[in-house]
Design a protein around this nucleic acid. Structure first.
Length: 424
RNA sequence: GCGGCCGUAGUUCAGUUGGUAGAGCCCAGGAUUGUGAUUCCUGUUGUCGCGGGUUCGAGCCCCGUCGGCCGCCCCA
């Protein structure tokens, strides 16, 4: 026992008792995304480190101290992807998916890695599902992503979630605002904490997000990004709000919502729950019109979001939103004296005729009583009973474990099939 | 990276001022031998997270370490 190896910190095993939740979420997502005609794209978990430097931004926390990076044998620095957009954009450029101005609606799914302190709703390996729209610059694209996610929450049955939106303006508008903001905070240096001072040079917009009570006054009086927005961004933002209103999506505008990755411009949004403690964001995204060009592609407007599947699974478990369906249709109960050859022969014959039937064959011969108990524990609908009597008379005894009226019937194989095929 | 709480059977936990460990659930078997609830008997399980130290003696005290939870931070 002393030489047993445990899983790495912040990693987790998904056990059979909850894999069904993951599978069902994946089904629902696929269904909803299909209905909006998004297509799945798959790209590597491992990329060159400099991809994330350029895409996410060198001054962000993700890049500064949260990446799983190491050198390859040839000496190139590689990184396990901390998010999906950078790799997705790389794949789009490399495969020419957006050449000739073609619109692309893509989605992806898979594990991401960030070297953080584990907490409820925060792991070092976590699963994200993301969706991206390339080559559409209007607010309709932003809206469609929000509407699609809203539909997903509805299908999953998530309560207590709210939508926050904001506009960061075009990159040029933001550069102007950034300067104004730096000047403002420099006038109030004494009130700023260490974190804020550090960010003053790197990412001043994030200072607005601080929860430090001592800084709330300065933050409250800081110049608002909203006042620096260019006309185009304002028009874009109000169009988005119009569409959301029309479609009955509730939201609140949070002027301080800035998000941590450098590539966003114009629209940003977050879906937030109050049921997960400190890690309340289950989905976040926004527009990133200059990222494709920044990564060496043709100038291509784009917008996207990513959601944390782990957090959604956590919610479904905590709030008991779903209940596990019983999947076992029938259990084959055979007397100990019955030859295994016959048991497997029969079960295979049944499977040939009823391919969708979930049939459990007890591989561990025990008493009838024990086998019935087990069938009951599996919530099986039927017991298929085979003993000496049945074999001698060439019949099968079928007993309903849920319907008393059905009771138990002695049947020839054809009659048995006829009844069972009504259930599967 | 910082702070607080915690780590005992498969699981949830109890373990009193330090005297080499218990309960419920679960699981297995049984209650006139081919039938599932409930009930009633019977039974199995632990290097008390790991490594040091103090002590005649440590699950309990001290140090370290690993891991978990919660908050900060960050984000999905």
């Amino acid at each position: 026992m002393s030489n047993k190896i445990n899983r790495l910190r912040g990693m987790y095993d998904v056990l059979p008792s909850e894999t069904w939740i993951w599978q069902r979420i994946e089904e629902v997502i696929q269904e909803v995304f299909d209905s909006y005609n998004f297509q799945e794209i798959r790209f590597p978990l491992l990329e060159e480190t400099r991809l994330f430097y350029t895409a996410i931004g060198e001054a962000t926390d993700v890049v500064e101290r949260e990446m799983f990076s190491f050198n390859s044998r040839s000496g190139t620095s590689l990184t396990l992807r901390p998010e999906g957009t950078a790799g997705c954009v790389r794949a789009v450029i490399q495969n020419g998916l957006c050449n000739r101005g073609l619109a692309q609606k893509l989605w992806y799914q898979g594990p991401m890695f960030r070297y953080e302190r584990p907490q409820k709703g925060r792991n070092r390996q976590f699963t994200q599902v993301g969706a991206e729209i390339f080559n559409i610059d209007n607010a309709q694209a932003d809206a469609e992503l929000i509407l699609m996610s809203a539909r997903l929450w509805k299908k999953i049955g998530l309560p207590n979630i709210r939508l926050e939106i904001n506009s960061l303006g075009t990159t040029s508008a933001r550069i102007v605002y950034r300067k104004v903001l730096i000047d403002y905070f420099k006038k109030h240096l004494t009130v700023l904490d260490e974190d804020a001072k550090r960010r003053l040079e790197t990412n001043p917009l994030r200072i607005l997000d601080s929860k430090n009570p001592g800084m709330q006054e300065v933050i409250k009086n800081a110049p608002l990004l909203t006042d620096f927005l260019d006309d185009e961004s304002i028009r874009h933002f109000s169009q988005l709000k119009e569409i959301l209103d029309e479609c009955g999506i509730n939201y609140s505008v949070n002027p301080k919502l800035v998000r941590g990755l450098d590539y966003y411009s114009k629209t940003v949004f977050e879906w937030i729950t109050t049921d997960l403690g400190a890690q309340g964001t289950i989905c976040g995204g926004g527009r990133y019109d200059s990222l494709v060009e920044l990564q060496g592609g043709k100038p291509t407007p784009a917008v996207g979001f990513a959601m944390g599947i782990d957090r959604i699974v956590e919610l479904i478990k905590d709030l008991k939103l779903w209940s596990q369906p019983n999947s076992v249709d029938a259990v084959l109960i055979a007397d100990k004296t019955v030859n295994p050859r016959f048991i497997n022969g029969l079960s295979e014959k049944i499977r040939n005729c009823l391919p969708k039937l979930n049939l459990v064959v007890n591989l561990n011969p025990s008493s009838f009583k024990a086998q019935f108990k087990k069938a009951d524990k599996l919530s099986a609908k039927f017991a298929i009973i085979v003993g000496e009597n049945e074999i001698n008379a060439n019949i099968i005894t079928l007993k309903s474990l849920t319907d008393k009226e059905f009771g138990q019937k002695e049947l020839h194989f054809d009659g048995f099939l006829k009844i069972m095929s009504q259930y599967k």
